[in-house]
């Protein structure tokens, strides 16, 4: 399931709901992204997260479909927020549920790595010098690239 929303989410509630009623699930893996108060050694206040409505949902849906194809998952969830966020706020949740831990952990890792390089979101950080658009990092591209190979667990 994909959700793109301005509102915060309740982590415990989301994870419980993901596995509710399916006793074939042996493990749930999750990743939660948070807003930091430092970026490149500089103090950062709030940030604005901009997105491309329509394309965002389309890309997230495709990334999720790819995970479902590669790993035996009983359920998956991607929540990504947009709008104004403060340090400490939750930005993103990726969660996967599977009979076994390898599939849950690997697919969760895959989802967050792919999302970071493919989903159309942009961060505008408040800094002492004014609003700064965050630059994409090469390391994110490298992290995503390793998943181009087939997973070893299959």
């Amino acid at each position: 399931m994909i959700r793109v929303q301005r509102e915060d989410f309740d982590l415990g509630e989301e994870l419980r709901a993901l596995s509710a009623g399916d006793h074939g699930i042996g493990g749930v893996a999750s990743f939660v992204g948070l807003v930091r108060d430092m970026a490149g050694g500089e103090k950062v206040g709030a940030m604005m997260l901009e997105h491309y409505p329509g394309m965002t949902e389309k890309m997230l849906g495709r990334i999720e479909a790819e995970a479902l194809e590669r790993w035996p998952l009983n359920a998956s969830l991607i929540i990504h927020r947009y709008g104004r966020l403060e340090p400490g706020d939750q930005i993103v949740l990726v969660a996967t549920a599977s009979p076994h831990r390898e599939a849950a952990l690997e697919s969760c890792h895959f989802l967050i790595d792919w999302l970071k390089t493919k989903a159309p979101f942009w961060k505008l950080e408040d800094t002492p010098d004014g609003g700064q658009w965050v630059d994409a990092r090469d390391s994110d591209g490298d992290a995503a690239a390793r998943w181009i190979k087939q997973p070893t667990s299959e």
């Binding site: 997105h51 990504h80 967050i112």
Partner: peptide
């Protein structure tokens, strides 16, 4: 057609 910089979400 949309023009944008490399994405920085997550």
């Amino acid at each position: 057609v949309a023009l944008f910089p490399p994405v920085t979400g997550g």
